[in-house]
C-alpha cells in the first residue's frame, strides 16, 4: 500500500465564498474511503478538484505522484452526480467512447455487467430512467482499471436493491493497487464497506480515521458518531 493521493493547502472559493479552507490529506492505495459530511460541506468540491473539473484557487494535489492533468486523468475514474453523456448517445456508443479514450477500459466487463442489469445496448441515454442512467455510468466507470475511483454520491438517488448492487460492484472491483473514494451522506448503508472515513465540515477536515478505530474507541458506529458530530 503506497501513497496515492497527496493534498496540501487546498483552497477553493465560489466567487467570494470559501468552500475548501486549506485541506491537507494523504491517502493510501488499496483503501475504500468514505468522504462524509453534511450538504454544502465541500465534499463534491473536493472530489471535483481531484478529478480535474475544478481548478483550486490555492494548494497542491498529486495523484500517484503527478499533478492533476492528463496523466492523472488516465488513472482516475470519476463518477459525478449528473448524467454526463449526450442524451442522444446510445449505450453502445458510450462503451465505444470509453474504449476510444481510456486505455484501461475493459469492454467485456462493461458488456457483461450491462447485460446482467438487462440494459439494452441500443437504448438512447435520454430514453433511460434516471436510475438506469446512473447504473450505466457506474458500470462504465467501474469497468476501467483505474488507480483511483471517485464516486460522488453513487447511492443517493437509487433504490435499496440498486444500492446493494452498487456496493457489491465496488467490492468486486477492489484491488490493492487502487483506492475508491465514496462521497455520501447515507453512511449506515456503506459503513461496512469502508476502510477509512473522512468527515468534512465547512470546508475543513473534522475527522480522519479508520472505521475500526472509530468503532473501537467510541463503541458506536460511524453513522452514530456522525450524527453526534454534526448534530444540528
Amino acid at each position: 500500500m503506497s501513497m496515492l493521493i497527496g493534498v496540501k493547502g487546498l483552497h477553493k472559493k465560489y466567487g467570494k465564498k470559501p468552500v475548501l479552507k486549506g485541506l491537507n490529506l494523504e491517502l493510501k492505495s488499496g483503501r475504500i474511503i468514505g468522504l462524509l459530511g453534511p450538504n454544502g460541506s465541500g465534499k463534491s468540491t473536493f472530489i471535483k478538484c481531484l478529478a480535474g473539473v475544478l481548478t483550486p484557487n490555492e494548494g497542491e494535489i498529486t495523484i500517484a505522484g503527478k499533478k492533476v492533468g492528463i496523466e492523472t486523468k488516465e488513472i482516475v475514474s470519476y463518477l459525478p452526480e449528473r448524467t454526463y453523456f449526450s442524451p442522444n448517445m446510445k449505450v453502445k456508443e458510450t462503451i465505444e467512447f470509453f474504449k476510444d479514450f481510456y486505455k484501461d477500459f475493459r469492454e467485456e466487463r462493461a458488456m457483461d455487467l450491462l447485460s446482467k442489469l438487462d440494459i439494452s445496448l441500443d437504448s438512447k441515454i435520454k430514453h433511460l430512467s434516471k436510475g438506469t442512467r446512473e447504473k450505466v455510468q457506474l458500470v462504465l466507470v467501474m469497468s476501467r482499471e483505474a488507480k483511483l475511483y471517485l464516486l460522488d454520491e453513487p447511492i443517493g438517488g437509487v433504490d435499496p436493491a440498486a444500492r446493494d448492487y452498487i456496493l457489491k460492484t465496488i467490492l468486486t472491483n477492489y484491488s490493492e493497487e487502487a483506492s475508491v473514494i465514496i462521497s455520501t451522506h447515507l453512511i449506515s448503508d456503506v459503513e461496512n464497506v469502508l476502510d477509512d472515513v473522512i468527515f468534512i465540515q465547512n470546508g475543513e477536515i473534522a475527522l480522519s480515521s479508520s472505521v475500526d478505530d472509530i468503532r473501537e474507541k467510541n463503541g458506536k458506529s460511524v453513522d452514530a458518531l456522525f450524527r453526534e458530530v454534526f448534530a444540528c
Binding site: V53, F85, F101, Y102
Partner: peptide
C-alpha cells in the same frame, strides 16, 4: 453537464 465527461478524458 457533458463537461464532466470531456474534462476528465485524458486529452
Amino acid at each position: 453537464d457533458q463537461g464532466y465527461l470531456m474534462h476528465t478524458i485524458p486529452v
